[in-house]
Write a protein that binds this DNA or RNA. Structure first.
Length: 311
DNA sequence: CGCTTTTGACCGGCGC
DNA sequence: GCGCCGGTCAAAAGCG
């Protein structure tokens, strides 16, 4: 990843905010008098103390907010994890069921007179064909991008050059779906479909098909324009097993968290501190997260997604 | 003038 | 075989 080397992706998260908060006044107390004497400022100790207390309150409030945010994220993660696990189970069942259904229908068609052997061989051929086709299938990945709700354009700035070649209103979603081709290289086979999420109109769901056969043309445009990512400009969605109605997540946490069991203790300062530490260390240590973040910023997330994704 | 976007028409797959 | 639907094409319009 050439871009990860250019960008410092370290989040520099404060892994131990509560302790530092406790230490902060002590540090400041040591610093204040020396500054005070050296610069000879006309500030009374009272004023300085008041300012420090105010600052401390502000930081505490900020910390509280962040802790709450992390708690919510953790809850969402667990919920999503359960959903994905259930869905993957269901999809396996569904695949088997649909295969059975197809086999049954083809068998029913053959009940007229064909015998067993030819029947089974044809179904085997079909399955082989299917497998071959699936291998040929271009890699598909999906990304969700939060935009202004009022922004009606279906433009996802991921750093690549796209040419729109069609737009359709699909049955499952009232908002139009736009079709794009990569126009940076004429031979590039990558296509992109962009459609607003049916659940949240402010979220654009971009589906990428294929892999770019050329280097990334440029640094991605800043996400400050029409796209307003909170932390990540683009958010990798769970792709394979989740439908378009799947819940959009803002973080792709791939490692299991021990929070499910300790949810009962949620709210205690110890738990919150533990949560903060765990989340921060998970985020900063997890190479998947780092790469996803870097990819999201640089537009490389597409390639990462497709590589990580099963065909 | 060349590139991009728009949009109606067309095509192919799939289910009934 | 027919109709529906998603995906693509291509001509016209727009834009810098």
């Amino acid at each position: 990843m050439e871009f990860t080397s250019l960008l410092n992706t370290s989040l520099d998260l404060n892994a131990n905010p509560l302790r530092i908060l406790d230490e902060a006044p002590l540090l400041r107390k040591q610093e204040v008098p020396s500054d005070f004497i050296e610069l000879g400022r006309n500030i009374t100790v009272k004023e300085e103390r008041g300012a420090l207390i105010e600052e401390l309150n502000r930081v505490s409030a900020e910390n509280k907010k962040l802790t709450e945010l992390l708690t919510v994220m953790c809850e969402n993660y667990n919920e999503l994890r359960h959903r994905v696990m259930n869905m993957s189970k269901n999809s396996v069942v569904d695949n088997d069921a649909s295969r059975k259904r197809k086999a049954e229908s083809s068998n029913n068609g053959n009940t007229g007179g064909t015998n067993g052997p030819s029947e089974s061989s044809s179904s085997d051929e079909d399955s082989c064909k299917k497998q071959r086709e699936e291998h040929i299938k271009p890699k598909i990945s999906r990304a969700c991008v939060r935009t202004e709700a009022s922004d009606t354009s279906l433009i996802v700035k991921d750093g690549y050059q796209w040419r729109k070649y069609g737009q359709k209103v699909t049955r499952d979603n009232p908002s139009p779906r736009a079709y794009f081709k990569c126009s940076f290289a004429p031979s590039c086979p990558v296509k992109k479909k962009v459609q607003r999420s049916i659940e949240d109109q402010s979220i654009l769901v971009a589906t990428y098909e294929g892999e770019h056969n050329h280097p990334h043309p440029s640094k991605p445009e800043p996400t400050s324009g029409s796209i307003r990512g909170v932390t990540l400009g683009t958010v990798p969605c769970p792709t394979t097993s989740l439908s378009s109605s799947a819940q959009t997540v803002t973080l792709d946490l791939t490692k299991p968290q021990p929070a499910t069991e300790s949810n009962r203790k949620m709210g205690t300062p110890q738990y919150q501190q533990y949560l903060v530490e765990q989340m921060a260390s998970t985020l900063t240590k997890d190479p998947n997260f780092k790469s996803a973040l870097a990819g999201g910023i640089t537009g490389q997330f597409l390639q990462q997604n497709t590589r990580a994704e099963k065909w």
